[in-house]
Lab assay of single mutants.
Amino acid sequence: MMAYMNPGPHYSVNALALSGPSVDLMHQAVPYPSAPRKQRRERTTFTRSQLEELEALFAKTQYPDVYAREEVALKINLPESRVQVWFKNRRAKCRQQRQQQKQQQQPPGGQAKARPAKRKAGTSPRPSTDVCPDPLGISDSYSPPLPGPSGSPTTAVATVSIWSPASESPLPEAQRAGLVASGPSLTSAPYAMTYAPASAFCSSPSAYGSPSSYFSGLDPYLSPMVPQLGGPALSPLSGPSVGPSLAQSPTSLSGQSYGAYSPVDSLEFKDPTGTWKFTYNPMDPLDYKDQSAWKFQIL
């Protein structure tokens, strides 16, 4: 009977010793046993002879290597770790002494450095960015050149030099007046198309007034536009458009034309069986010896 009264063996659950049927240790109110408190290391007290050895090595170098620390530790009968900690504390003490010396050398008012006064946003004049500046400075420094007289040679050079070769001289006033084509001369031969040399188009003023001019072949195509416009036809070669000034309004060009419109200028042929003959000019830059190549039959 006494065997049943004795408590059973101890069981360990999660490293906790349980005594038989008792489960009081598993209750929430019972805390787990805490780790033992780490003991504080005792402070090391250095003797005068030990301090002399350490100070002598510190005077040589503030960062001794492990071999120098072990050698000193053997002399003063201390572990190497204590020597390492002593050098660490000695360097910190040396830095603190240097900072105190710097503070003593500075004057009393030198510690508080005078800061520059901050400028207020409204006091300083700042350039306004509302208006974009002129990058080319046209509004201040540029002045347009004065327009020359209508009959000045410089204007003629600016007008005619675009179309004339570089080897030719500017046309005088008398020749510029001949550039304007007359109405009857352009409409006299509506079906004849003559190819003149390129030099005649640039230099010869008579080429624009003769039936064999460069633009005589364009007349049949330009004249039928007159009834559609409801007024006189516009002429690209009329009046002052080739003269001194090219800047004319469309209203000033509306009254200039080749001449009176005639039914002869239409595109319809009077004789459907007729042929169109292209007159060959020996001055043509295209060297075609066979003139029969310039004739064709309209079917």
Rank of each mutant, 00 (worst) to 15 (best):
M2L: 11
M2Q: 01
A3E: 00
A3V: 13
A3D: 00
A3G: 00
Y4F: 07
Y11E: 00
Y11V: 03
S12Q: 09
S12E: 06
A17T: 07
L18W: 07
S19D: 02
S19G: 05
G20Q: 07
P21Q: 02
P21K: 07
P21L: 12
S22A: 05
S22P: 09
S22G: 07
S22K: 08
V23A: 02
D24K: 14
D24C: 15
D24Q: 15
M26P: 05
M26S: 03
H27P: 02
H27V: 15
H27F: 15
H27W: 14
Q28V: 12
V30T: 02
P33G: 07
P33C: 10
P33N: 09
P33Y: 15
P33F: 10
P33I: 10
S34Y: 10
A35T: 03
A35L: 11
P36S: 07
K38L: 11
R40H: 10
R41L: 11
E42L: 11
T44Q: 09
T44I: 11
T44H: 09
T47N: 01
T47P: 15
T47A: 07
R48A: 05
R48E: 12
R48S: 06
S49Y: 09
S49F: 09
Q50G: 15
L51V: 10
E52M: 06
E53H: 05
A56N: 05
A56W: 10
F58M: 13
A59P: 12
K60Y: 02
Q62C: 05
Y63I: 13
P64L: 12
D65P: 08
Y67T: 09
E70Y: 10
E70R: 04
E70P: 13
E71V: 08
E71Q: 11
E71L: 10
V72T: 10
A73E: 12
K75F: 08
I76Y: 07
N77I: 12
E80L: 09
E80C: 07
S81F: 13
Q84K: 05
V85Q: 12
V85C: 13
F87I: 14
F87L: 13
K88D: 14
K88Q: 12
R90P: 15
R90T: 15
R91L: 15
A92P: 15
A92I: 15
A92H: 15
R95L: 14
R95E: 14
Q96G: 07
Q97D: 10
R98C: 04
R98M: 02
R98W: 01
Q99F: 05
Q100F: 15
Q100V: 09
Q101H: 08
Q101D: 12
Q103L: 06
Q104S: 09
Q105E: 05
Q105Y: 02
P108F: 03
P108L: 03
Q111K: 07
A114K: 10
R115V: 02
R115P: 01
A117D: 01
K120C: 00
A121I: 06
G122Q: 04
P125V: 08
P125W: 08
P125E: 03
R126E: 01
S128P: 10
S128E: 06
S128W: 07
S128L: 08
T129D: 08
D130G: 05
P135T: 06
P135N: 07
L136M: 09
I138T: 03
I138Y: 05
S139I: 03
D140R: 08
D140M: 04
S141Q: 10
S141L: 04
L146P: 06
P147H: 06
P147N: 06
G148W: 10
S150A: 02
G151D: 11
G151H: 10
G151P: 12
S152V: 02
P153S: 05
T154V: 10
T154K: 11
T155Y: 15
A156N: 02
A156E: 03
A156C: 10
V157G: 04
V157Q: 02
A158D: 00
A158W: 15
A158M: 15
V160C: 00
S164Y: 12
A166L: 12
S167Y: 13
S169T: 03
L171A: 08
L171F: 10
E173G: 11
E173Y: 07
E173C: 13
A174K: 12
Q175M: 11
Q175Y: 12
Q175K: 11
G178N: 04
L179A: 04
L179I: 08
A181S: 03
G183F: 13
G183D: 01
S185I: 14
L186N: 05
T187P: 06
A189M: 13
A189E: 06
P190D: 04
P190R: 12
P190V: 14
P190Q: 05
Y191F: 09
A192M: 10
M193N: 00
M193T: 00
T194D: 00
Y195W: 13
A196N: 02
A196M: 11
A196I: 12
A198H: 08
S199L: 15
A200M: 12
F201R: 01
S203N: 01
S204A: 06
S204R: 11
S204F: 15
A207G: 03
Y208H: 03
P211V: 08
S213T: 10
S213M: 12
Y214K: 05
F215E: 00
F215H: 00
S216G: 06
S216Y: 15
G217P: 11
L218D: 00
L218G: 00
L218V: 03
P220D: 03
P220G: 04
P220W: 11
S223Q: 06
P224L: 10
M225L: 11
M225C: 06
V226N: 02
V226I: 11
V226D: 02
V226E: 01
P227H: 10
P227A: 11
P227W: 13
P227G: 10
G230L: 12
G230R: 14
A233P: 04
P236I: 13
L237P: 02
S238D: 02
S238M: 07
G239R: 15
P240I: 12
P240Y: 13
V242K: 09
G243D: 03
G243Y: 10
P244C: 11
L246V: 04
A247K: 10
Q248Y: 10
S249G: 05
P250W: 12
P250D: 03
T251K: 07
S252N: 06
L253P: 02
L253V: 07
G255V: 11
G255H: 09
Q256D: 05
S257M: 11
Y258V: 05
G259T: 09
A260D: 05
Y261W: 11
P263M: 11
V264Y: 03
V264E: 01
D265A: 15
D265P: 12
S266A: 08
L267A: 00
L267V: 07
L267G: 00
E268A: 10
K270F: 02
D271N: 08
P272Q: 02
P272K: 09
T273W: 12
G274I: 12
G274K: 05
T275H: 10
W276C: 01
K277H: 07
F278H: 00
Y280A: 00
Y280F: 15
M283P: 09
M283S: 03
D284C: 15
D284G: 14
P285G: 07
L286H: 02
D287F: 13
D287M: 15
D287E: 08
D287P: 12
D287V: 09
Y288E: 03
Y288R: 14
K289Q: 06
K289F: 11
K289M: 04
D290F: 15
D290H: 15
Q291W: 11
Q291I: 13
Q291Y: 09
S292M: 11
S292Y: 13
S292H: 09
W294R: 00
W294V: 03
K295H: 08
K295E: 05
F296M: 00
F296Q: 00
Q297D: 00
L299S: 01
